[in-house]
Simulated assay, not measured.
Amino acid sequence: MFLEVSQLSVRYPGRQKPAVDAVSFGLAAGDIGVLIGPSGCGKTTLLRAVAGLEAVAGGDIRLAGDVVGSPQGQMPPETRRIGMVFQDYALFPHLDVGRNVGFGIHHLPRAERTARVAEVLALVGLSGMEARHPHELSGGQQQRVALARALAPRPRLLLLDEPFSNLDVDLRERLAHEVRTILKQAQTTALFVTHDQMEAFAIGDAIGVMHEGRLHQWADAYTLYHRPATRFVADFIGHGVFTPAMVRDEAGRVVVSTVLGELADVGHHSNGGHGHDGTGQHDLLLRADDIVHDDAAPVKAQILRKLFRGSEFLYTLRLASGEVVLAHVPSHHNHQIGEWIGIRPQIDHVVTFPRG
């Protein structure tokens, strides 16, 4: 692994709990990792520790095999060859784009510096804008300049701290895709912090879900969504609800009894990271895409709320038992709030967690 974080802990004076608590993960060269979680979960503190801006209280950080941070010693930030892109871009308003981008490579000969500035501006799609000033650019263009400036010195690792949070939603998602393409073309290893799941899914090869200083799971987006390791990950990623279920083993067959009927011969059963042998009372994770609208189904549910999303509605439904579930329904099925509709489960990955 190019970046290795092993049992990393970071503490702030006066706080009883560590801000980062025994976190371990690895990032391969050329990959993009994303840290996601609610505010105050420790993701930015972890990023700052990797940058060398926070002291390591326990564990260590290795970059290309070298220990750059541990309780025994810290490599200074300026010698780690790490680039950073901040939330507020931190562009110099009095400098034009060319001089902003070239700021970190002023030691190079002028011709080489000019060529490198042109190269990274071309990479981020801003060729020919060297003479513009930041105030003449859109928010998305300013973010690209900040990215170009960070890439110009050819860092070993690029750190991005919520770089799209000041942009509107549509631009954020588009820019996330574009930044991923840019980083892959530059063959840059990057670690990215965000609180936005769609950004994380769009940009990350591996995504870490953090809560209260701990890393709950480090995996690709598909695994986080379909095989969450903890109840927190299951609840935090995607739309879903928990409903009571009874799990039993019938001669090697896993059978899950739910308010929607029995789910038998469960091929992909994840017992909340506890293996496949958990039986008894559980909570079943039901995603909105696990529920299919079917007028012929024997189970009926009443529409409590609906959210129009263009190609589909997100329906919030209440069963006769009082249980609430979510369902994605094609938008031509435009039912009214209060109506009862037929639903059935269609679950490829059954995820349960022991009750309590």
Results as ranks from 00 to 15, higher is better:
V5C: 05
S9P: 10
V10M: 04
G14P: 05
P18F: 01
V20P: 05
D21N: 14
D31K: 15
P38R: 11
S39H: 11
A49H: 03
G59M: 13
D66K: 11
G69Y: 02
S70N: 09
M75H: 04
E78V: 06
T79K: 15
I82G: 01
M84I: 14
Q87A: 07
L91M: 08
D96V: 03
P109D: 05
L121A: 12
G125T: 03
L137K: 07
G139W: 00
G140N: 10
Q141G: 09
V145D: 08
A146E: 06
L147S: 10
R174L: 10
R180M: 07
K184I: 02
Q185L: 05
M198G: 09
D205C: 09
A206N: 07
H211V: 09
L215F: 00
H226D: 03
F236L: 06
H239N: 15
V241T: 14
E250V: 15
R253A: 12
V255P: 00
V259T: 14
D265V: 02
H269E: 04
G272L: 11
G273H: 03
G275W: 00
G275Q: 08
L286P: 03
L286M: 06
D289L: 01
D290R: 03
Q302I: 09
T316G: 04
T316S: 10
A320T: 09
V325Q: 12
P330A: 11
H332E: 14
H333E: 13
H335P: 02
Q346C: 08
H349G: 01
V351G: 04
